[in-house]
Design a protein around this nucleic acid. Structure first.
Lengths: 127, 127
DNA sequence: GTACATTACATGCATCCGCATCTAATGCAA
DNA sequence: TTGCATTAGATGCGGATGCATGTAATGTAC
């Protein structure tokens, strides 16, 4: 049915806009992080080992160029470190600094609180 | 449960990114429209009467300034008309031109096809 | 080895966005 | 009426994004 997709899409659109807006504001005001920046920190915190930029690219919904810049910002802020890759000198490893890990830990509750607020009454959609 | 929200959010994020990317590309290549532009046309096509800019703002997930510019672009492209509002001279009415209605009609199948592809295997989420 | 295609990441560029602000019109109170 | 707050929409500005491209490293064919 054509219309069903449209309804689902509108719902995704609405939830995305609402959540993004809140995340940007809350994370920005309280922790000086953008939504993309937090997302990258969050993925890095989820893995113990260093990640190649390309691996991050698969997990985060950003273009390769956008990710490159987000990581550059995070590095300038002292939250991540970029390191050369031994086996492939084109590659770049990224890992959290202690500051980065701390900042992520501090921002996590804020992030989760926003999700909880938006999705509290949400019907479980996922596959 | 904390983690459930996160999973839902990741799903929303993924679907949004995927759909947006495809919409932007397909609508752009085939009809010279951005996703925001199509969305505005779509809302206008859904109503018979003229719409106040503010009414559009409630339906579209854009800031007021972004909407103002989208409408400006659409007007420059000859797809909509801006008209003064009699009862409140601050207000602005927007309506589709014939070209705008035609362009929307042409782009609709493309739009729906993208949604169908992305949400084809989606479980019915809505409440 | 040389030459060419490909990959990983960085960067120039144009575009679009949201925030803050501006202008003009309206409403409301004294 | 005057004066002030509010509202509708437009716009300046800074920032983030994606696309196309650049650079350097790698792989492959010969």
């Amino acid at each position: 049915m054509d219309e069903a997709f449209v309804v689902v899409w509108h719902d995704v659109l609405a939830k995305h806009a609402r959540t993004m807006c809140m995340l940007e504001r809350e994370l920005g005001d309280k922790h000086g992080l953008g939504a993309s920046e937090f997302e990258v920190l969050d993925r890095l915190a989820g893995h113990e080992r260093k990640l190649r930029l390309q691996e991050l690219c698969d997990e985060v919904h950003l273009s390769q160029s956008a990710l490159s810049r987000v990581v550059a910002r995070l590095e300038k802020a002292g939250l991540v470190l970029r390191g050369a890759c031994d086996v492939d000198r084109r590659g770049v490893f990224v890992c959290l600094t202690d500051d980065g890990r701390a900042r992520h830990a501090a921002a996590l509750p804020t992030h989760r609180a926003v999700l909880a607020e938006v999705f509290a009454d949400a019907p479980v959609p996922v596959a």
